[in-house]
């Protein structure tokens, strides 16, 4: 039983660690990518993968009590609002006329 709990703790640490790495990768992608449309996808790595892994790790670490419920609530809320705000940004940019880059060596075709 004790070994099982220790194993669960190790899984929680791995989840938290890899969630942190995913968040960094998302931020790095949003810094590296050449134009707005590709940056949207990099930000969505943080919104889905990083959030799932970090909240899952914290939930396993805390055991099963009211804290787990709060983490679940935060997770569900971020899962509904994250895509909604991504879609809102994308739709506003599309309506304002920012088009995706065809060639990746070209400067972004942005009209100010």
């Amino acid at each position: 039983m004790n070994i099982f709990l220790d194993l669960l703790q190790v899984i929680a640490w791995i989840c938290i660690f890899s969630g942190g790495i995913l968040v960094i990768i998302g931020a790095l992608g949003s810094l590296r990518f050449p134009d707005f449309w590709s940056r949207l996808h990099a930000a969505s790595v943080t919104d889905s993968g990083g959030v799932i892994l970090l909240l899952l790790g914290m939930g396993i670490h805390s055991g099963f009590n009211l804290i787990t419920f709060k983490l679940l609530l935060i997770g569900v809320f971020l899962f509904i609002t994250g895509p909604t705000s991504s879609h809102a940004v994308a739709n506003a940019a599309w309506v304002s006329g920012i088009k995706p880059l065809r060639n990746k060596h070209k400067k972004p075709g942005i009209d100010k």
């Binding site: 969505s44 790595v45 889905s48 895509p83 991504s86 994308a90």
Partner: peptide, 14 residues
């Protein structure tokens, strides 16, 4: 639409 946006790599625009 939310699922399309939630999976990285695809985003619903309109």
């Amino acid at each position: 639409a939310n699922t399309i946006t939630l999976t990285p790599g695809t985003i619903t625009v309109e």
